[in-house]
Design a protein around this nucleic acid. Structure first.
Length: 279
DNA sequence: AAGAGAATAT
DNA sequence: GATATTCTCT
């Protein structure tokens, strides 16, 4: 069909931030606090940069980073558990994260859009299946609600301009467009499935205690590749080599999705990525 | 046994 | 209300 169909993933890929644009994320399996508590020297790089203690959260970049919000503190008394059993802070679904989520779901097709697959496609470090499952549950609710309200010839994809019956709009889900085919059930539509392409864009997952220090959480390079057993390829890829699939057609790709979500026709960039508290 | 989905809890 | 956790069913 159209080349859009054949290259959908290429275009989709372009939506993602390039490695350079991603947050510097230093590979930290152990939280700084934990490391200090155990007198473990920083296993990664010496990190000459002093991490900013400023409570400033998300504003430096349109980085696609998920944020965690730590509800409880793990005092120095309970620091004997491996990081594995440590309780994860609450995941905060930022518009970026959600965008990623929606994109994944959209491109997977409803059929394959199950938590595990979505999670893999999203390739967000630290994201768990339950995180996705939980979000998916809510997202489906949102879609369902929307279907119910928009059945009267919404004509377009902006079903949200119908009755003001979508309070969820101001929260999160409205921040990313819902693919049209989501709004009406799959009819006679052949299942479009695809082998997921593991992007090694690691979105940083940031954990915050309070409006205070943020720590970087673990980073999973779960490529989900089961067929990389080539004997001659012992440890082939670091996450620095970003293999673009033959999309070398154009290189002038620029991210515009998330950022231009609120970009008016004027071309003025209104940063509404996060609640800057300005509006 | 793993995982999806709904129900329930925090 | 948002996200996590538990439970049931496949």
């Amino acid at each position: 069909m159209r080349e859009e169909d054949s290259n959908w993933f290429a275009k989709w890929e372009e939506e993602f931030p390039k490695p350079e644009e991603l947050m510097p994320l230093s590979q930290t399996l152990i939280t700084p606090d934990l490391a200090i508590a155990f007198d473990i020297p920083n296993p990664t790089s010496p990190n000459p940069q002093n991490k900013q203690q400023t409570p400033l959260v998300q504003s430096s970049q349109p980085n696609s980073s998920a944020e965690f919000e730590s509800g409880e503190l793990n005092g120095p008394g309970c620091g004997d558990e491996p990081a594995r059993t440590l309780k994860r802070p609450r995941l905060v679904w930022t518009p970026q994260l959600h965008k990623r989520f929606v994109d994944s779901v959209a491109h997977l097709g409803i059929k394959n859009a199950v938590p595990k697959t979505i999670m893999q496609l999203m390739s967000v470090d630290g994201l768990t299946r339950e995180n996705v499952a939980s979000h998916l549950q809510k997202y489906r609710l949102y879609l369902k609600r929307m279907q119910g309200l928009s059945n009267s010839g919404s004509g377009g994809s902006n079903a949200q301009s119908l009755s003001g019956a979508d309070p969820a709009m101001d929260n999160l889900f409205a921040s990313s467009p819902v693919p049209a085919h989501f709004l009406h059930p799959a009819r006679g539509n052949s299942d479009q499935f695809m082998p997921f392409v593991p992007h090694h864009h690691h979105m940083g997952v940031v954990v915050g205690h309070h409006p205070h220090v943020q720590q970087q959480y673990r980073q999973f390079g779960s490529p989900g590749n089961g067929h990389f057993d080539h004997p001659f390829l012992s440890r082939q890829q670091s996450q620095q080599q970003v293999q673009r699939m033959g999309t070398s057609g154009h290189n002038g790709n620029y991210v515009e999705d998330v950022d231009s979500a609120a970009t008016g026709a004027n071309g003025r960039k209104v940063l509404t990525l996060f609640p800057t508290g300005d509006d």
